[in-house]
Nucleic acid binder design. Sequence first.
DNA 1: TATTGTTATACTCTATAACTATA
DNA 2: TATAGTTATAGAGTATAACAATA
Lengths: 160, 160
Amino acid sequence: MNAASRPPAADAAREETIDLGMLPALIGFNLRSAQLSVFQHFNRTLGKSEITPAQFGTLILIEANQGISQSAVAAALRFDRSTLVQIIDRLEGRGLVVRKASSRDRRSHALQLTPRGERLLAELKQRVRAHEDAIAGALSEDERRTLHDLLTRVQSGSEG
Amino acid sequence: MNAASRPPAADAAREETIDLGMLPALIGFNLRSAQLSVFQHFNRTLGKSEITPAQFGTLILIEANQGISQSAVAAALRFDRSTLVQIIDRLEGRGLVVRKASSRDRRSHALQLTPRGERLLAELKQRVRAHEDAIAGALSEDERRTLHDLLTRVQSGSEG
DNA sequence: TATTGTTATACTCTATAACTATA
DNA sequence: TATAGTTATAGAGTATAACAATA
């Protein structure tokens, strides 16, 4: 027996090929892997704009629902209300969003984009589309729909 | 015009139906939603065992690769080495894992499950399978494979 | 009584940088 | 010089609990 056919290692400290066991079969593991990759790509693509996915989602919701309340954004994005306070604090601090008085409920704030927020969001949407095309570039339109459908159904299964 | 056909609200503070804009079309958004649901379901199913997904993955890797090093686990799960230190600290503190001396590299630790760790992992695997069946229950075998394939390809697209 | 936004606080997850002991 | 593990530390993200104002 020569060096090229040495016996299995006594331990796996130097193994190049690691056995992942049941992990690759788990949806949770694959979701985490994919999300990690996608999130990192998002940061590479939009990092210069100093925007996080949560902030981007918030801007999108405010644009599509002028005067929406913080609680409504929180519910839609599945954040706690207290988390939204901080997200809005940052966006308002950067002059992208304003808290206006609500016309019908004096407890709540009506959120609006500033002109600057609108301009930035227009740019961000383009970059996000480029990011999206990059990560889904290898998928056909049909496959994208399938992925969307399967993810939605996994979600339903997690709630029931 | 009666109350049932009132005009659009001046702001969206009370709208029940929120417009999510481009978000539902984004893979990143759907990944985050699905992962959030799946992670919460994991916690409901395995919370009693006081185990996190990261800890579970670590146990699986140690079982499948006796004597694996911390760096190898970190690389496989895409954690920093310093993060693995803390994960192993907790698992060792609970008597589930031991750091043994490596037989061939005195810098590294050969990780092993304790008998107690092996017993717990056997239970955990069953609970994780139940969790997996619950969240993927609505998916056929074919669809599970498709989801796995699509997530893998999204990942590839995020790296290139 | 319930809800909106807020504050204070804390916990988890994760990484960076610098260190040590080995290689 | 480079790598394995460790430590100290810090940042991001998130939640819980309690509060004032308002519904």
